[in-house]
Design a protein around this nucleic acid. Structure first.
Lengths: 141, 141
DNA sequence: CTAAACTTGACCATTTTAGTCAGGTATGTA
DNA sequence: TACATACCTGACTAAAATGGTCAAGTTTAG
């Protein structure tokens, strides 16, 4: 059970972005340098963030990315959904007519995994980019 | 962010085991049939559960596995640790002298991932095999 | 003495991850 | 108008993790 780097980088990059975009659009090159994330990889990530209307892009010299919403309205859920970081605890999904593992009934631990999934997702839904900014200011060296 | 089948199967198998081992040792073949998990794969899993003293084995005909503790004392944490299902939200670990991503300081979202890890682990620490048995009886069809 | 069940370790195909690479296109500035 | 900077897109890939299988045992009840 681990977080993929795509999800982690997306959040790191957005926190970085949120700290600088009051002044100017922030270029991926700057984020890449500050956060130590490959530029090419960042481009993939931001392409998805843009499709999901979390950021806006400004082309040309002095261009870059800007947040498309208030940091308070960008939840971790939104970010993770955008980059396909999904919480999956069960293989067996609702769509399937069968139960779990090809059985007719739900597997005996089905409720547990549902509960776990909800538990994690709740955490993501309650954390916004704003929270991270505040948290970061407080604990920053 | 997904649960691996090793962790999921381990819990399923133990719940199954807990329901039947009052009478006799339970053979992996039976669990395999009831839960639809490959016998060979179950053997790998139970080898680890045994090393971690969660189950005991009884060899020979009519042999099988038995719980080694009270279901109330077997937490999800114990099971997951046994089969190497670990919750990993950060790459950067405490042992490393460097910060995250080779930087000198902690990455800006480090606290977040630590918090998430704690959040998930708390869930695992508070759930015992006994809870699952009860829950299962209540909701079983 | 033999069948049922545990034990161990090697092996492997597939999928996912975590990127790289190679080309573009748009636009502000000199 | 040139050109540097930055976004944009899609193909490609090495390495790791996953989810097992296979083979060859050992132990013990009946």
């Amino acid at each position: 059970m681990k977080l993929t780097s795509k999800g982690r980088y997306a959040v790191m990059a957005l926190v970085d972005l949120a700290r600088f975009d009051n002044i100017n659009p922030v270029s991926l090159r700057d984020i890449s340098l500050r956060q130590g994330i490959s530029l090419d990889y960042l481009e993939q990530i931001f392409s998805k963030l843009k499709k999901n209307e979390i950021v806006k892009s400004i082309r040309g010299t002095q261009g870059g990315y800007v947040l498309n919403k208030n940091p308070n309205d960008i939840k971790l859920t939104n970010i993770f959904n955008a980059v396909d970081e999904k919480v999956k605890t069960v293989q067996c999904r609702k769509e399937s007519k069968k139960g779990c593992n090809g059985k007719a009934t739900k597997c005996i631990t089905h409720n547990l995994w549902d509960e776990l999934e909800t538990h994690i997702n709740t955490f993501f839904e309650n954390k916004s980019l704003k929270d991270l900014l505040n948290n970061n200011k407080e604990t920053r060296v």
